[in-house]
Design a protein around this nucleic acid. Structure first.
Length: 366
RNA sequence: GGGGUGUUGGGCCAGUGGUCUACGCCGCCGGACUGUCGAUCCGGUAUUUCACGGGUUCGAAUCCCGUACACCCCGCCA
């Protein structure tokens, strides 16, 4: 018999009843009834209930063990009585009656309580004990999701005939917008490598060498400040390059790959291809941004004609000098004081993360 | 770089200048219990202490100033 396991913790079903099996995993939960112990044994795949009877030599060992200790259990797969079936577990129709038990790794009391999925420890605590936080189902699944998304992106790009290339990490600074990360060189004293902000130069080198269609899940490094939705330092992007392609052909590839990826991994609604196309000038005029968030219902209206004739010289002068005066239509604020300089907090229907509501001027000159 | 908010026992948090010898939940420890699955029930637990330093006050977790750290926003991010 394999020294650690014959099955994973998400494998055994009622058809396996009667088999002698061996499982290894973490003690996720312990229910101590004095005369009988129930251990929820957890591994990457799932949870299986282990039953320990008081006649077993290791009964006391399990009873006193801290959660998250790692054990190997050998025993018989037993059908559960109908009234004790746990319908929340795929393995809930069976349990393992432990006959042998090896304590592989004794755990101390963990600073995070792993079974509590609703816990909201500070970011500092969760990062300090990252190896514990990642044991929790939600974060564990996030890591798996990322793996699957990246695999799916690769499969689609390969299927479309793109070649995947790696490009150097230690390189020279290129004239892009962000600050570079620098790595001191031992060979060239006093000199530094820069980490690539994007694979731009290498990608172009490959294209002029005739490789026709390129993609990379490209690591990018930019030494810029973090944000709530933006980790500092590094990120990965699906980088695509095509030869002899029209703009619409490139859009079609992106719409297909990104659309299918969201359809496969997300329950969020994604536009069917072709996606709405917004000209740069229109985006800037209507949304004030070249990357507008279309969930935000507020649009800028051109009020230049009105203010040209209005009695407010600052705005009228702006229009006379070729500028624009624009306004937002904000409903439900009648009675709110709107003297010059007042700004409104627009909560945007609660979509934004807490504390990130933005201040928007009622009117502005541009 | 600028601004805002916050920091309370192992974790999450409550806490109007005196009723704080600081509440609750979780954890943890001890006890009971042979069918639970967030087990249950009983009892206990935590440098008289509220990030640190100083100040106001008869009296500070609570008010003021400074420092440190954290988070968020702006700047920044082709």
């Amino acid at each position: 018999m394999h020294p650690y396991r014959t099955h994973t913790c998400n494998e055994l079903r009622k058809e396996d009843a009667g088999k002698t099996v061996r499982l290894s995993g973490w003690m996720f939960r312990l229910r101590d009834h004095g005369g009988i112990l129930f251990v929820d044994l957890r591994d990457h795949y799932g949870i299986t209930q282990i039953v320990v009877h008081p006649s077993r030599s290791f009964f006391g060992l399990v009873e006193k063990a801290h959660l998250e200790s790692v054990i190997t259990v050998t025993g018989e797969v037993k059908l559960r009585d109908p009234e004790t079936i746990n319908h929340d577990l795929p393995t809930g129709e069976v349990e393992i009656e432990a006959n042998e038990l090896v304590m592989e790794g004794v755990s101390g009391v963990t600073p995070l309580y792993i079974p509590d999925e609703k816990a909201e420890e500070s970011e500092e605590m969760r990062l300090k004990y990252r190896f514990l936080d990642l044991r929790r189902e939600k974060l564990h699944n996030n890591i798996i999701l990322r793996s699957q998304v990246i695999r799916f992106l690769r499969e689609q790009m390969w299927a479309k005939g793109f070649n995947e290339f790696q490009t150097p990490i230690l390189t020279a600074s290129s004239p892009e917008g962000a600050r570079d990360y620098l790595v001191p060189s031992r060979i060239h004293r006093g000199m530094f490598y820069a980490l690539p902000q994007a694979p731009q130069m290498f990608k172009q080198l490959l294209m002029v060498s005739g490789f026709d269609k390129y993609f990379q899940i490209a690591p990018c490094f930019r030494d810029e400040a973090a944000r709530a939705d933006r980790s500092p330092g590094e990120f990965y992007q699906l980088d695509i390059e095509m030869s002899y392609a029209t703009q619409d052909e490139i859009f079609a590839v992106v719409e297909d790959v990104v659309g299918k990826t969201f359809a496969k991994f997300s329950t969020w609604q994604c536009n069917a291809a072709p996606w709405p196309r917004i000209k740069y000038r229109d985006a800037m005029m209507v949304y004030g941004s070249d990357k507008p968030d279309l969930r935000n219902p507020l649009k800028w209206f051109d009020m230049s004609d009105f203010f040209r004739r209005a009695n407010f010289k600052a705005f009228a002068a702006c229009v006379e000098n070729g500028g624009l005066v624009k306004g937002l239509l904000v409903k439900g604020i009648v009675g709110v004081e709107a003297r010059q300089g007042t700004r409104l907090h627009l909560l945007d229907e609660g979509r934004r993360a807490e504390g990130t509501d933005r201040e928007v001027p009622l009117a502005r000159a541009a």
